[in-house]
């Protein structure tokens, strides 16, 4: 079974370069300050990502209904 199909795995999508820059500008942070996700993480599934990319996670939140979280892809 694909891990991404499991009920507790939220949807991961790759963020485009423009969105990535917008995100960093909005919060006034550098890429290094984002939370991390390992490149071999099973939650990424078949997503075509490399080191330094940013992944958007659409979580179902008990307080907000849906919330977005961003993680930087790292090798280790």
């Amino acid at each position: 079974m694909e891990p991404t199909k499991h009920a507790i795995v939220p949807k991961h999508t790759k963020v485009s370069d423009k969105e990535k820059q917008d995100l960093l500008d909005t919060y006034g942070i550098t890429l290094r300050e984002l939370p991390r996700i390992l490149i071999k993480d099973p939650g990424l599934g078949k997503l075509d990502v490399k080191e330094g990319d940013v992944v958007k996670v659409a979580r179902t939140s008990p307080t907000a209904g849906e919330s977005f979280f961003f993680r930087r892809v790292v090798a280790t």
Binding site: H6, A7, I8, V9, P10, P42, G43, L44, F69, R71
Partner: peptide
């Protein structure tokens, strides 16, 4: 497979990922 779970967090991280 969509609902089956374990209470071992490290196993979940390994099989389903950090967000899970």
């Amino acid at each position: 497979g969509e609902r089956t779970t374990t209470n071992d967090l490290y196993e979940i991280a390994k099989v389903l990922g950090i967000e899970a």
